[in-house]
């Protein structure tokens, strides 16, 4: 098939773009994990802020990706980074916030208060409770949020090709402009497969990180 031939003929470029794609998503989501989990934990202590934070992040994720890119370009043009990977990473970062923050927040709030009481009764400090009990118990749910954010953003990053970010989306955009159906299909299939594989790998990691007692 033509598609298969394309893969074989251009495997180096495809590989390069795949790695580019993965790295872009990886950094954006990784950064979002650090910020998002911390923010999620923080707002469990400050309930009033929680509603506001969740509201804002949920509105962000409602905005279509290309529109968000569109909004970033003028701002980042000021530092000459309007086009390229930076707006893409920032947009993906913002998109990842809601799933991660909300899942962290919900997971920690849903921990049985009896467990915290038992821990306090045993003489644990608040920070110890946080790191030894609350976070480990929340990991499955947090990972589910990370998984959702990652899969979503692999798709978003494909669109980012249109603002010069690179990645597998370039095959799709080139395929459309050049009316090259093969390239188009290669791009579409590659991104889909990447998303599916990423989902499975993260599911595997999620299960690994869930302590046996919780399953």
């Amino acid at each position: 098939m033509e598609v298969l031939n394309f893969y074989i003929a251009n495997y180096d470029e495809i590989l390069y773009k795949t790695i580019e794609h993965i790295l872009l998503v990886f950094f954006a989501v990784g950064f979002a994990i650090v910020v998002g989990v911390s923010l999620g934990i923080y707002i469990t202590q400050h309930k009033k802020l929680a509603d506001y934070v969740l509201y804002v992040t949920s509105i962000i994720i409602t905005i279509p990706s290309i529109a968000l890119f569109g909004l970033m370009i003028p701002i980042l043009s000021l530092i000459n980074q309007g086009i390229g990977y930076l707006p893409a990473i920032i947009a993906v970062f913002l998109y990842s916030l809601l799933p991660i923050v909300r899942n962290t927040y919900t997971a920690i709030l849903n921990i049985d208060p009896a467990l915290k009481e038992a821990a306090l009764g045993m003489g644990m400090k608040k920070s110890e409770i946080l790191f030894k009990i609350e976070i480990p118990l929340s990991i499955p749910i947090i990972m589910a949020g990370v998984r959702y954010a990652t899969v979503l953003n692999i798709g978003v990053m494909a669109i980012a090709a249109y603002i010069g970010a690179g990645g597998l989306g370039t095959f799709i955009s080139a395929g459309i402009t050049q009316s090259n159906e093969t390239q188009l299909i290669v791009g579409a299939i590659s991104v889909s497969i990447l998303a599916i594989i990423a989902d499975y790998i993260l599911l595997f990691i999620q299960n690994m990180m869930t302590s046996k007692g919780l399953k």
Binding site: I154, G155, I176, A188, I189, A195
Partner: peptide, 13 residues
């Protein structure tokens, strides 16, 4: 999990 851009692309093809 399939990215929506991919779905549109396939629809076009």
């Amino acid at each position: 999990t399939i990215p929506t851009l991919a779905i549109l692309a396939l629809s076009m093809s």
